Simulated assay, not measured.
Amino acid sequence: MPFLKVEGVRTVNQSGQNATLFDPFSDALALVLDLSASADLLALPQASFSATFQIFDPHGNRVAVSTAYGSAFNWGPRFWISKGNNWGPPTAYQTAEKWGLSWSANSIFGLRGLVKAQYIPSPGSGWAAVDAFDVSPMRWFRVKEKFRL
């Protein structure tokens, strides 16, 4: 039976470290999902996946950020995907501020990932869903309570 699984959820800083505390203005905040897919899923014609990264604000009981990623299975059965720039010059980093997070009343956030697979059974037939999906556990992280004047 085909499967697509979230093996890990990470929040990564500009040093490439899996971190849980971020300066809202200067630390990069990259969202990372570690994934695995079964061989029978990878063998389907034009198999691909869609992923959604969600940052949850527990005090507002809402999803504060939702961003999508999709691709063919190009990297084999075990791979990772990410959203947010944590390389290059510091001005290019995707920070908590650039993600649009509001930390004035709440400095704790959760990251979760959702993934699903699809394929094209025959040319011109369009996408077909596969019973291969997963939702990660919540990865909690904190934004330092700093403010601009």
Score class of each variant (00 low, 15 high):
residue 46 Q to R: 09
residue 51 A to M: 04
residue 107 S to A: 08
residue 88 G to C: 06
residue 97 E to C: 03
residue 140 W to M: 06
residue 37 A to K: 06
residue 11 T to R: 10
residue 1 M to N: 05
residue 77 P to I: 11
residue 137 P to L: 04
residue 17 Q to K: 15
residue 96 A to S: 07
residue 145 E to F: 00
residue 147 F to T: 12
residue 133 F to A: 01
residue 148 R to S: 11
residue 127 W to V: 08
residue 130 V to A: 07
residue 79 F to P: 00
residue 29 L to K: 01
residue 44 L to N: 06
residue 5 K to V: 12
residue 67 T to G: 01
residue 119 Y to V: 01
residue 28 A to C: 08
residue 41 L to G: 08
residue 116 K to M: 15
residue 24 P to K: 04
residue 110 G to H: 05
residue 117 A to V: 08
residue 93 Y to H: 13
residue 82 S to A: 12
residue 130 V to C: 02
residue 36 S to I: 13
residue 37 A to W: 09
residue 100 G to T: 08
residue 110 G to S: 02
residue 136 S to R: 04
residue 63 V to W: 04
residue 128 A to Y: 04
residue 8 G to M: 10
residue 78 R to T: 13
residue 115 V to K: 08
residue 36 S to R: 15
residue 123 P to G: 06
residue 70 G to R: 14
residue 106 N to C: 08
residue 1 M to D: 08
residue 122 S to P: 04
residue 146 K to D: 01
residue 70 G to F: 12
residue 128 A to T: 09
residue 14 Q to S: 11
residue 147 F to S: 10
residue 53 F to D: 04
residue 125 S to E: 13
residue 32 V to D: 01
residue 5 K to Q: 13
residue 80 W to P: 02
residue 51 A to Q: 04
residue 48 S to H: 10
residue 43 A to V: 11
residue 56 F to Y: 14
residue 39 A to N: 04
residue 123 P to Q: 12
residue 18 N to W: 13
residue 6 V to S: 07
residue 126 G to S: 07
residue 40 D to M: 06
residue 47 A to R: 02
residue 76 G to M: 13
residue 59 H to N: 09
residue 81 I to D: 00
residue 111 L to T: 09
residue 50 S to F: 11
residue 25 F to A: 05
residue 143 V to K: 03
residue 72 A to V: 08
residue 86 N to M: 02
residue 12 V to A: 05
residue 95 T to D: 03
residue 141 F to C: 06
residue 52 T to D: 12
residue 144 K to D: 07
residue 96 A to I: 05
residue 23 D to W: 04
residue 94 Q to A: 08
residue 67 T to S: 11
residue 63 V to T: 15
residue 9 V to K: 07
residue 115 V to A: 05
residue 132 A to C: 02
residue 25 F to G: 09
